Amino acid sequence: MEQPDLNALYVIEALDAERSVSRAADRLGLTQPAVSHALGRLRETFQDDLFVRAGSVMAPTPVGEKVIEGTHRALAIARQEIWQVKSFEAATTTRTFTVCLSDMGVIVLLPKLLAALHKAAPNATLRPLQVPSMELASALQDGDVDLAIGYLGRLGENLHQQSLFTRPLVGIIRGGKARKTVKMSPERFMESRHVVSSTLALTNRLLEKELRRHGKKLKVGVDVPYILAVPGLVANSDYIAIVPEELAALFSRLAAVDVFPLPLPLEDVTVQQFWHARYHNDAGHRWFRALVAETLRQ
């Protein structure tokens, strides 16, 4: 079966708008014979005149009206969903951006991202969620997640990554009414029991590695699934915890904890954003990544 010439849709659209072969030809940048030939082929295809002379203009037949209606729908879809696929207008987009954040990211980063998105794209939506680390690479590949943001290390193949900011690690310890920065000896630090959280898995690994260098093991007082449980547990026990500096500042406002510089050298942690190669050149995705980078680097 011969495939239809889709360029004929533009001819139908022009004839409907101009109601004249010559004016339709001008509109399309074609010669009048070319448009007449295209109309002749369409008449053959539909076994109908489609447009007939009515005074000084050409009017559509009943079949022509149905063809015009379908043509407008088809071209609208083509223009909106195909030809404009590379365009992106932040001011008018209603797109939902899905971001994988840990509970720490939701506490520290999400408010900044929400404010920036609302200002730049007021009709867009930001959807935070958590995905198990073993499923994150496939979620990024399948488009279930646009970006993963955090201290994540290496996630897998075909993933792009961009460093956003670096933070030093500090310790928190039970404090009094007045919040202050205190000191801790290496000996006391290595003998103390820690509150750890799965959210701080990278921090825990760095700490375990450094303690092994000193012939020590990490002493876990309690392992909690929620990062927000950490400051309360530290404030009401002799346990300590190691957290990024920004989080320690927040915890000192939530509970009676003091902050101390680490007496052992631990490398700073770097927050990165990750995305799959499938979406690297998507206009909206590119715009959102740039917004995230600009916002979180401030």
Score class of each variant (00 low, 15 high):
Val99Ile: 14
Val106Cys: 04
Leu109Gly: 04
Ala120Tyr: 08
Ser102Gly: 11
Leu126Val: 03
Glu135Ile: 02
Met134His: 14
Gln130Ala: 05
Ala116Tyr: 13
Ala124Asn: 08
Leu101Gln: 02
Ile107Pro: 00
Ser102Ala: 05
Val99Arg: 03
Leu136Ala: 08
Pro122Glu: 05
Pro128Val: 05
Ala121Ile: 12
Leu140Asp: 09
Cys100Phe: 01
Pro128Glu: 01
Asp103Thr: 07
His118Arg: 15
Leu114Lys: 15
Ser138His: 00
Ser138Tyr: 06
Pro122His: 07
Pro132Tyr: 03
Ala124Tyr: 08
Leu136Ile: 01
Cys100Val: 00
Leu117Ala: 13
Leu110Cys: 04
Ala137Lys: 10
Lys119Asp: 09
Leu126Ile: 09
Arg127Thr: 09
Leu117His: 12
Ala121Arg: 12
Val106Ile: 11
Ala116Asp: 07
Leu114Val: 14
Ala121Leu: 08
Ala120Gly: 08
Val108Ala: 07
Leu101Gly: 04
Ser133Thr: 14
Ser138Lys: 12
Arg127Ser: 13
Gly105Leu: 02
Pro132Gln: 08
Ala115Ser: 15
Pro111Val: 02
Ser138Cys: 00
Lys112Trp: 03
Ala116Pro: 11
Met104Lys: 06
Leu126Glu: 01
Leu110Gln: 05
Cys100Ile: 00
His118Tyr: 10
Leu109Lys: 09
Thr125Asn: 11
Arg127Phe: 11
Pro111Gly: 03
Arg127Ala: 11
Pro132Trp: 00
Leu117Ser: 11
Ala121Thr: 09
Pro122Cys: 05
Ser133Lys: 15
Leu113Tyr: 01
Ile107Asn: 08
Met134Asn: 10
Asn123His: 15
Leu140Ser: 11
Ala120Lys: 15
Lys119Phe: 09
Ser138Met: 05
Pro111Ser: 05
Val108His: 08
Gly105Pro: 06
Ala124Trp: 06
Leu140Tyr: 07
Ala116Asn: 13
Leu110Ser: 03
Asp103Ser: 08
Glu135Thr: 04
Leu129Arg: 13
Glu135Met: 09
Arg127Pro: 02
Gly105Tyr: 01
Leu129Ile: 07
Pro128Asn: 07
Ile107Asp: 11
Pro122Ile: 05
Leu101Val: 02
Leu129Thr: 11
Leu113Met: 12
Ala137Tyr: 00
Ile107His: 14
Val108Met: 09
Ala120Ser: 15
Leu110Arg: 04
Met104Ala: 14
Ile107Tyr: 05
Pro122Gln: 05
Leu114Pro: 00
Leu114Asn: 11
Val131Ser: 09
Leu110Thr: 04
Leu101His: 02
Pro111Glu: 00
Lys112Phe: 04
Leu113Arg: 01
Asp103Tyr: 00
Ala137Phe: 01
Pro128Gln: 07
Asp103Asn: 12
Met104Glu: 13
Ser133Met: 13
Leu126Asp: 01
Leu136Pro: 12
Leu101Arg: 03
Val99Cys: 02
Thr125Ile: 12
Val108Tyr: 06
Leu109Cys: 02
Met134Thr: 05
Leu109Met: 12
